[in-house]
């Protein structure tokens, strides 16, 4: 079965979405990520969606949910590299993802996570 790889980098988890997301894949990712956070006691999750050029409300909600789940398990979520078209679509759908941190690219996202960790 198709899966999205979850990479571990120190105390952070790195997820790079490089295929078209369909609903089942999103649900699998959600479950896998929750398991991995618990297994590795990660403090931060970085989701790179720069290759994602289409979203629907389901995927939008998935991002929200992942962030919520991670927060309960004491991990920060940062979404990086959102494409303009995706951002506009989400805004038009009314999904403003409150509480989800964002950054322009992976490097800035990592820095953001590190500062958060340092502060905590």
């Amino acid at each position: 079965m198709e899966r999205i790889p979850i990479l571990r980098m120190g105390e952070f988890l790195l997820v790079t979405i490089q295929v078209d997301m369909h609903d089942q894949l999103a649900l699998t990712l959600q479950d896998d990520l929750a398991d991995r956070i618990s297994a590795t006691s990660a403090r931060g999750v970085l989701i790179d969606i720069s290759a994602l050029d289409m979203v629907d409300s389901f995927i939008g909600r998935m991002i929200s949910t992942i962030s919520g789940v991670a927060r309960i398990m004491d991990a920060e979520t940062v979404v990086v590299g959102m494409q303009p078209a995706v951002a506009i679509t989400l805004v038009e759908l009314g999904l403003t993802l409150p509480g989800v941190s964002t950054a322009l690219d992976v490097e800035r996202g990592m820095n953001l996570l590190r500062t958060r960790m340092g502060r905590a």
Binding site: V79, V80, G81, M82, P84, V86, A87, I88, L90, V91, E92, T96, L97, T102, A103, L104, D105, R108, G109
Partner: peptide, 12 residues
């Protein structure tokens, strides 16, 4: 508001 939200979603 929409524009500002979209910019925030992009990470800026």
């Amino acid at each position: 508001l929409k524009t500002v939200t979209a910019i925030r979603l992009m990470g800026a």
